[in-house]
């Protein structure tokens, strides 16, 4: 299935019935792969039903591609079973680590972007793509602390990872905004530098200010609506690169389904505007 450049919504169990009943034109859903790694039961049955007329994207949060060890073989096998079952339009993971020496931490941890790290992560991305039998997209992380020892910028690192492995990029605009804020960088410069040809998907989500540090330290909570500066960055990105499948992510303080759909409709409107603008330029 060719990824359709429409807006989608992160699928939550409390919205299954509404997601199934929603009109299909363009709407798609993304799930965290780890939440469907079960032998059977209602979750899988709901996703079977929803996947019959809406595209599904499988988004991994725990493969730990940036660990100093290969991804867990059992996890890769479980991911392959989900890919075979749901035929997703997109499969993605993070540029981060979370599992090491048999212990998993439910977070996306940072690392120094060294040449050695690039080689190791490229091997792990290749293992993932071999296991699922297709291209995957790799997502830029939210960063919360200034690490020393980087040898490459993040965009340069991701572009080189894509060159070596053939993977694409999942550009999380909220993560760009949060990281730039926390580390004192320019979010606009990052958005302008992402190589258009590599971008296969875009994420939009909400963030919150740290309880102690305030807005000096923003946290990628996915527990709030998409913030206005993030919408502005998103517009800037798609005006340059053109429309891409765009997801509204929400994992905390989950609102009623229509509220998420309203955010998806706003993204959809911006995608169509970006498309019209590009067509007009090409016709001129």
């Amino acid at each position: 299935m060719t990824p359709s450049p429409h807006a989608g919504v992160g699928l939550k169990p409390q919205h299954y019935a509404e997601a199934l009943a929603a009109p299909a034109h363009g709407l798609w859903f993304e799930v965290h792969a780890e939440n469907y790694m079960a032998a059977g039961g209602p979750r899988l049955a709901w996703l079977d039903a929803i996947a019959r007329d809406k595209p599904i994207s499988l988004h991994g949060v725990g493969l730990s591609l940036a660990a100093d060890e290969p991804p867990d073989a059992g996890h890769l096998a479980a991911l392959r079973r989900l890919v075979d079952r749901y035929r997703p339009m997109l499969v993605s993971e993070h540029l981060a680590w979370s599992m090491r020496q048999g212990v998993y931490v439910p977070d996306l941890l940072p690392f120094p972007r060294t040449r050695a790290a690039l080689s190791r992560i490229a091997d792990n991305v290749a293992r993932m793509q071999d296991a699922v039998g297709r291209q995957v997209l790799i997502e830029n992380p939210s960063l919360y602390l200034p690490l020393d020892g980087h040898e490459m910028g993040e965009v340069e690192f991701l572009a080189e990872l894509a060159r070596r492995t053939g993977c694409g990029l999942l550009v999380d605009v909220n993560n760009i905004f949060v990281s730039a804020n926390n580390l004192g960088r320019s979010a606009e410069a990052y958005v302008d530098a992402v190589p258009a040809a590599l971008v296969g998907e875009i994420h939009l989500a909400g963030h919150d200010a740290d309880e102690r540090m305030g807005r000096a330290l923003l946290i990628d909570t996915h527990a709030a609506p998409v913030a206005e500066p993030v919408w502005a960055l998103y517009g800037r990105l798609i005006r340059r690169i053109g429309p891409r499948p765009t997801l509204i992510e929400r994992d905390g303080e989950i609102p009623a389904f229509p509220e998420l759909l309203a955010e998806a409709e706003r993204a959809e409107g911006m995608l169509r505007a970006a498309e019209r603008a590009r067509e007009a330029l090409l016709d001129a």
Partner: peptide, 24 residues
């Protein structure tokens, strides 16, 4: 030993610790 120090590092580590504790 080569990866950083200071108050910003501590504040960031607290974010990771809190997220991990809450996730579990």
């Amino acid at each position: 030993a080569g990866w950083g120090s200071g108050a910003d590092l501590d504040a960031g580590l607290t974010v990771y610790r809190n997220t991990i504790a809450k996730g579990c």
